[in-house]
């Protein structure tokens, strides 16, 4: 396993956000973590990338225990993240944002830059535009591209579809598949469960800080419980029933 979380607990003050979470991501996989608002999806990613300390449990990455490793060192270890809300540097140009992505690395980064521009031609067109003045979709592309600049072994994506038009969502998801096809492992956190389950190999369902279900993604697409809770089956019922 490339990434392994074992019995991880995370607290905000006295409130437990993650309560004994265990999950595994194998090399070359796309694994998705779905769940409702506040289930602990973002916290899980932040704990993996080192932005949140864990109060119990263990994170093993690439054979090393990284539970206590500071966040900025995990980048060099091979963990890249496109954070919640994209986290684009608003006052830096697209090119400078991408350069920041390679901040921890020394040496030539032109190969990665060319690859990012090839994946996202839109970014190449807007090299000199300030990050803060771009549209939501472009910012999402920039956030993913920036994470790729560090040549991560695993790419953590936090709600890449948030706030995007349906067409853009399609585009972002097909790029995620392409990134994975080129050899990067992906851990994807999504509220848009239908989309996420279509591109992922495996999936975990998170509820109030615990994994309640784990299965191949295709199976969950057909799972009646998951359909009802996350794919808009039963959730739509009260609204459609209303007029009568």
């Amino acid at each position: 396993m490339l990434l392994e979380l074992a019995d991880v607990h995370v607290h905000y003050g006295k409130i437990a956000a993650i309560r004994g979470l265990s999950l595994e991501v194998g090399e070359g996989e796309i694994v998705t973590l779905i769940g409702a608002n506040g289930a602990g999806k973002t916290t899980t990613l932040k704990t993996v990338s080192g932005l949140r300390p864990l109060s119990r449990g263990r994170i093993v990455f690439d054979g090393r225990d990284i539970s206590r490793m500071p966040g900025h060192k995990r980048v060099l270890a091979g963990i890249g993240q496109s954070p919640e809300g994209r986290g684009v540097f608003p006052g830096m140009t697209v090119a400078d944002n991408l350069a920041m992505g390679a901040y921890a690395r020394r040496g030539d980064t032109s190969k990665e830059l060319a690859e990012v521009y090839e994946l996202f031609p839109r970014l190449a067109e807007r090299k000199d535009q300030l990050g803060g003045t771009m549209s939501g979709g472009e910012q999402q592309m920039l956030a993913i591209g920036r994470a790729l600049m560090a040549r991560p072994k695993v790419l953590l994506l936090d709600e890449p579809s948030m706030g995007l038009a349906p067409m853009l969502v399609q585009q972002i998801f097909s790029i995620i598949v392409e990134i994975n096809r080129r050899g990067t492992t992906v851990l994807l956190v999504e509220q848009n469960a239908a989309q996420a389950l279509q591109v992922a190999h495996r999936a975990y369902v998170l509820e109030t800080g615990r994994i309640v279900k784990s299965a191949p993604a295709a199976d969950l697409l057909d799972d009646p419980q998951v359909r009802a809770a996350y794919l808009g089956g039963a959730a739509d019922a009260p609204i459609t029933a209303d007029p009568e």
Partner: peptide
């Protein structure tokens, strides 16, 4: 210098800076 770039990143988004490998 690199220090200035790191400061700019911290100022604009501290979490993102840490994710870029900046020892914030």
């Amino acid at each position: 210098s690199r220090v200035g770039r790191a400061w700019a990143a911290i100022r604009e988004d501290e979490d993102a800076a840490e994710l870029m490998g900046v020892p914030t």
